[in-house]
Amino acid sequence: MTFESLSSPTMVIVSLTAALLLLSRDWRVSVVTLAVQYSGVFVLTALSWPLEMAAVKLVAGWMACAILGLALMEMPRRGREEISPPLSHALFRLLAAVLMGLMVLSVAPTVATWIPTIALGQTIGGLMLFGLGLLQLGLTEKPLGVTLGLLTVLSGFEILYAVVESSTLVSGLLACVHLGLALAGGYLLAGETVSEVS
Protein backbone atom coordinates (compact mmCIF):
# COMPACT_ATOMS: atom_id res chain seq x y z
CA MET A 1 0.00 0.00 0.00
CA THR A 2 1.40 3.39 -0.95
CA PHE A 3 0.74 6.82 0.48
CA GLU A 4 -1.22 7.71 -2.70
CA SER A 5 -3.95 5.28 -1.72
CA LEU A 6 -4.09 6.87 1.75
CA SER A 7 -4.48 10.37 0.32
CA SER A 8 -8.28 10.55 0.31
CA PRO A 9 -8.93 9.01 3.73
CA THR A 10 -6.18 11.17 5.22
CA MET A 11 -7.72 14.27 3.67
CA VAL A 12 -10.99 13.41 5.41
CA ILE A 13 -9.21 12.71 8.71
CA VAL A 14 -7.29 15.99 8.78
CA SER A 15 -10.47 17.91 7.91
CA LEU A 16 -12.34 16.20 10.74
CA THR A 17 -9.52 16.85 13.22
CA ALA A 18 -9.45 20.55 12.32
CA ALA A 19 -13.23 20.72 12.79
CA LEU A 20 -12.97 18.88 16.11
CA LEU A 21 -10.29 21.29 17.31
CA LEU A 22 -12.73 24.09 16.56
CA LEU A 23 -15.53 22.43 18.54
CA SER A 24 -13.67 20.80 21.41
CA ARG A 25 -13.69 22.41 24.85
CA ASP A 26 -11.68 19.68 26.55
CA TRP A 27 -7.94 20.22 26.41
CA ARG A 28 -7.21 16.47 26.44
CA VAL A 29 -9.38 15.93 23.35
CA SER A 30 -7.73 18.93 21.68
CA VAL A 31 -4.18 17.71 22.25
CA VAL A 32 -4.95 14.16 21.10
CA THR A 33 -6.80 15.51 18.04
CA LEU A 34 -3.80 17.68 17.20
CA ALA A 35 -1.54 14.62 17.42
CA VAL A 36 -3.83 12.72 15.01
CA GLN A 37 -3.83 15.76 12.74
CA TYR A 38 -0.02 15.70 12.60
CA SER A 39 -0.17 12.04 11.53
CA GLY A 40 -2.38 13.13 8.64
CA VAL A 41 -0.03 15.97 7.77
CA PHE A 42 2.82 13.44 7.70
CA VAL A 43 0.96 11.21 5.22
CA LEU A 44 -0.01 14.12 2.94
CA THR A 45 3.54 15.52 3.04
CA ALA A 46 5.00 12.08 2.31
CA LEU A 47 3.25 12.21 -1.07
CA SER A 48 5.79 14.88 -2.11
CA TRP A 49 8.77 14.34 0.19
CA PRO A 50 10.99 11.34 1.01
CA LEU A 51 9.69 9.44 4.00
CA GLU A 52 12.57 10.42 6.31
CA MET A 53 12.01 14.12 5.65
CA ALA A 54 8.25 13.88 6.05
CA ALA A 55 8.84 12.11 9.37
CA VAL A 56 10.36 15.37 10.66
CA LYS A 57 6.88 16.86 10.55
CA LEU A 58 5.45 13.98 12.53
CA VAL A 59 8.17 14.07 15.18
CA ALA A 60 8.11 17.88 15.52
CA GLY A 61 4.30 17.87 15.61
CA TRP A 62 4.08 15.22 18.29
CA MET A 63 6.74 17.03 20.30
CA ALA A 64 4.64 20.20 20.01
CA CYS A 65 1.63 18.23 21.29
CA ALA A 66 3.69 16.91 24.19
CA ILE A 67 4.85 20.42 25.09
CA LEU A 68 1.28 21.73 25.06
CA GLY A 69 0.03 18.71 27.00
CA LEU A 70 2.70 19.14 29.67
CA ALA A 71 1.97 22.87 29.96
CA LEU A 72 -1.74 22.14 30.39
CA MET A 73 -1.08 19.40 32.93
CA GLU A 74 1.00 21.84 34.98
CA MET A 75 -1.94 24.22 35.19
CA PRO A 76 -4.15 24.12 38.25
CA ARG A 77 -7.42 22.27 37.64
CA ARG A 78 -9.45 25.48 37.64
CA GLY A 79 -7.32 26.98 34.88
CA ARG A 80 -7.81 23.99 32.57
CA GLU A 81 -11.51 23.52 32.89
CA GLU A 82 -13.69 25.33 30.41
CA ILE A 83 -17.21 26.36 31.29
CA SER A 84 -19.56 24.27 29.14
CA PRO A 85 -20.72 26.52 26.33
CA PRO A 86 -24.37 26.61 25.27
CA LEU A 87 -25.48 24.38 22.38
CA SER A 88 -25.86 27.42 20.13
CA HIS A 89 -22.12 28.06 20.53
CA ALA A 90 -21.22 24.59 19.23
CA LEU A 91 -23.84 24.81 16.48
CA PHE A 92 -22.49 28.13 15.29
CA ARG A 93 -18.95 26.76 15.12
CA LEU A 94 -20.13 23.62 13.35
CA LEU A 95 -22.01 25.65 10.75
CA ALA A 96 -19.02 27.93 10.26
CA ALA A 97 -16.81 24.86 9.77
CA VAL A 98 -19.25 23.40 7.23
CA LEU A 99 -19.32 26.70 5.33
CA MET A 100 -15.53 26.82 5.32
CA GLY A 101 -15.46 23.20 4.09
CA LEU A 102 -17.81 24.02 1.23
CA MET A 103 -15.73 27.03 0.28
CA VAL A 104 -12.56 24.94 0.26
CA LEU A 105 -14.18 22.26 -1.89
CA SER A 106 -15.24 24.92 -4.40
CA VAL A 107 -11.83 26.63 -4.70
CA ALA A 108 -9.60 23.54 -4.39
CA PRO A 109 -9.73 22.53 -8.10
CA THR A 110 -8.67 26.07 -9.10
CA VAL A 111 -5.84 26.17 -6.57
CA ALA A 112 -4.69 22.74 -7.78
CA THR A 113 -4.10 24.22 -11.24
CA TRP A 114 -1.74 26.85 -9.78
CA ILE A 115 0.59 24.29 -8.20
CA PRO A 116 1.98 21.70 -10.61
CA THR A 117 2.10 18.05 -9.48
CA ILE A 118 -0.12 18.60 -6.46
CA ALA A 119 -2.69 15.90 -5.70
CA LEU A 120 -6.28 16.93 -5.10
CA GLY A 121 -6.17 15.27 -1.68
CA GLN A 122 -3.21 17.46 -0.70
CA THR A 123 -4.95 20.57 -1.99
CA ILE A 124 -8.18 19.91 -0.12
CA GLY A 125 -6.40 18.72 3.03
CA GLY A 126 -4.03 21.71 3.07
CA LEU A 127 -6.70 24.29 2.34
CA MET A 128 -9.08 22.73 4.87
CA LEU A 129 -6.49 22.98 7.63
CA PHE A 130 -5.56 26.51 6.57
CA GLY A 131 -9.19 27.66 6.46
CA LEU A 132 -10.38 25.96 9.64
CA GLY A 133 -7.26 27.16 11.46
CA LEU A 134 -8.02 30.72 10.40
CA LEU A 135 -11.60 30.25 11.60
CA GLN A 136 -10.29 29.03 14.95
CA LEU A 137 -8.07 32.11 15.21
CA GLY A 138 -11.01 34.36 14.46
CA LEU A 139 -13.23 32.77 17.10
CA THR A 140 -10.91 32.60 20.09
CA GLU A 141 -8.86 34.88 22.29
CA LYS A 142 -7.52 32.19 24.63
CA PRO A 143 -3.84 31.14 24.39
CA LEU A 144 -4.69 27.46 23.83
CA GLY A 145 -7.16 28.23 21.02
CA VAL A 146 -4.75 30.66 19.36
CA THR A 147 -1.86 28.17 19.56
CA LEU A 148 -3.97 25.34 18.14
CA GLY A 149 -5.24 27.66 15.40
CA LEU A 150 -1.74 28.76 14.43
CA LEU A 151 -0.40 25.20 14.41
CA THR A 152 -3.34 24.13 12.23
CA VAL A 153 -2.85 27.01 9.78
CA LEU A 154 0.87 26.25 9.50
CA SER A 155 0.21 22.53 9.00
CA GLY A 156 -2.17 23.33 6.15
CA PHE A 157 0.37 25.64 4.58
CA GLU A 158 3.13 23.07 4.91
CA ILE A 159 1.14 20.40 3.06
CA LEU A 160 0.83 22.77 0.09
CA TYR A 161 4.37 24.14 0.39
CA ALA A 162 5.91 20.66 0.57
CA VAL A 163 4.84 20.13 -3.05
CA VAL A 164 6.96 23.04 -4.28
CA GLU A 165 9.84 23.15 -1.79
CA SER A 166 11.87 20.22 -0.54
CA SER A 167 14.82 21.95 1.09
CA THR A 168 16.18 20.30 4.24
CA LEU A 169 16.88 23.69 5.79
CA VAL A 170 13.28 24.82 5.27
CA SER A 171 12.02 21.55 6.72
CA GLY A 172 14.20 22.04 9.79
CA LEU A 173 13.23 25.68 10.23
CA LEU A 174 9.52 24.86 9.90
CA ALA A 175 9.91 22.16 12.55
CA CYS A 176 11.58 24.77 14.78
CA VAL A 177 8.64 27.12 14.19
CA HIS A 178 6.17 24.41 15.29
CA LEU A 179 8.16 23.69 18.44
CA GLY A 180 8.61 27.40 19.12
CA LEU A 181 4.88 28.03 18.74
CA ALA A 182 4.10 25.21 21.17
CA LEU A 183 6.64 26.61 23.64
CA ALA A 184 5.22 30.14 23.28
CA GLY A 185 1.71 28.73 23.72
CA GLY A 186 2.79 26.85 26.86
CA TYR A 187 4.39 30.01 28.21
CA LEU A 188 1.26 32.07 27.58
CA LEU A 189 -0.91 29.32 29.11
CA ALA A 190 1.14 29.60 32.27
CA GLY A 191 0.52 33.34 32.17
CA GLU A 192 -3.20 32.79 31.85
CA THR A 193 -3.18 30.58 34.93
CA VAL A 194 -1.29 33.11 37.02
CA SER A 195 -3.74 35.84 35.92
CA GLU A 196 -6.73 33.71 36.87
CA VAL A 197 -5.29 32.67 40.22
CA SER A 198 -4.31 36.23 41.12
Binding site: E141, P143, V146, V153, L154, Y161, G191, T193, S195
Partner: peptide, 28 residues
Protein backbone atom coordinates in the same frame (compact mmCIF):
# COMPACT_ATOMS: atom_id res chain seq x y z
CA UNK B 1 7.90 41.03 25.94
CA UNK B 2 6.16 39.19 28.79
CA UNK B 3 9.06 38.43 31.15
CA UNK B 4 6.91 37.01 33.95
CA UNK B 5 3.90 34.80 33.26
CA UNK B 6 0.74 36.42 34.52
CA UNK B 7 0.80 39.71 32.73
CA UNK B 8 -0.26 38.42 29.31
CA UNK B 9 -3.25 39.91 27.54
CA UNK B 10 -4.74 40.13 24.09
CA UNK B 11 -2.01 42.27 22.48
CA UNK B 12 0.65 39.57 22.70
CA UNK B 13 -1.68 36.96 21.19
CA UNK B 14 -2.53 39.25 18.29
CA UNK B 15 1.15 40.02 17.78
CA UNK B 16 1.96 36.31 17.63
CA UNK B 17 -1.00 35.59 15.33
CA UNK B 18 -0.34 38.33 12.79
CA UNK B 19 3.40 37.74 12.64
CA UNK B 20 2.90 34.00 12.16
CA UNK B 21 0.25 34.46 9.48
CA UNK B 22 2.57 36.65 7.44
CA UNK B 23 5.17 33.93 6.91
CA UNK B 24 3.16 31.49 4.73
CA UNK B 25 2.10 34.26 2.37
CA UNK B 26 5.69 35.45 1.87
CA UNK B 27 7.04 31.95 1.32
CA UNK B 28 4.35 31.12 -1.18
Amino acid sequence: LIPAPGAFQRGILRYLTYQTLGMPFILF
